[in-house]
Computed example of a mutant assay.
Amino acid sequence: MNRILRWAAAPLAVAALAGTTLLPAASASAATGATAMTTYTIELISLTCNKKQDVDKDEPELFIDGVSKFGPGSMKKGDTAILTGRSATFTGTATMELFEVDNGQDDFLGSAQVTSAQADGNVHVATFDFRNHAKYTLLYEVTS
């Protein structure tokens, strides 16, 4: 009998040591709802080629958290692609990456982090210039 009581008390001791509180089932579900993650949306506006990477036209492709949101396009210096209507949702942070698509291995042009703190009603700018001879500017907004 003592062995059973000792094993039954172990979860209570572990919870106390971890600084957590055990709640009845009804309270636990209420607590879970209070910590739900807010979803944010990245609204893309435009991508501008300030300096191309390739000898001919570039074929840029933009990914947000690994999902293609634009491209591969066909751009030269001074071109702007309008991206309105394209968006991605995230919680916490998202990663935007730009590549120049080639016949062989694609060229990584850079990445930018988007955070929930950017849901401030302003237009934000991400610059992709990781590779020599390449510079792109992305305009976007973050909403909650």
Rank of each mutant, 00 (worst) to 15 (best):
S144R: 12
L109S: 02
V125Q: 13
T32M: 05
F128R: 04
T48I: 03
V123S: 03
L139H: 13
T95S: 11
F128P: 05
G33D: 15
P24D: 14
D54L: 08
G19A: 06
N122D: 07
T143Y: 02
V14H: 13
R3P: 00
D129F: 00
A30I: 10
S111P: 03
M37F: 11
T48L: 07
M75F: 02
T84H: 06
A36S: 12
D102T: 13
A26W: 09
A18M: 09
L139C: 02
K135Q: 14
T48K: 10
D54C: 07
L22M: 12
A34L: 13
T127N: 15
R3G: 00
A112D: 08
S29K: 06
T21V: 14
H133E: 09
P60Q: 02
I45Q: 05
I4V: 12
N103Y: 13
A126P: 08
D56E: 12
V114M: 08
P72C: 07
I82L: 06
V101E: 10
I4Q: 11
L109H: 04
T95A: 08
G104P: 04
T95N: 11
E59W: 07
L44S: 01
T20Y: 02
D56R: 11
Q105V: 14
S29V: 10
V55G: 06
I64V: 15
L139W: 02
D106M: 02
K51G: 08
S111I: 02
K135A: 10
T21F: 08
D102E: 15
Q53K: 14
F63D: 09
A119V: 02
T35A: 09
M96Y: 12
P60E: 03
D58A: 05
T137M: 13
G19Y: 10
F99G: 03
W7P: 00
N50S: 12
T143M: 01
E43N: 15
E61C: 12
G78D: 14
S29G: 00
R86P: 00
A134S: 15
K51W: 07
W7E: 15
R131T: 04
S46T: 10
V14N: 11
L109R: 10
P24M: 01
F130L: 05
L44A: 01
T38M: 06
I45P: 01
I64S: 05
V123M: 04
V142D: 00
G73P: 07
V125I: 14
L23M: 13
L5K: 11
F130K: 13
T89S: 13
L109C: 07
F99V: 11
G33S: 15
M37Q: 15
L17T: 11
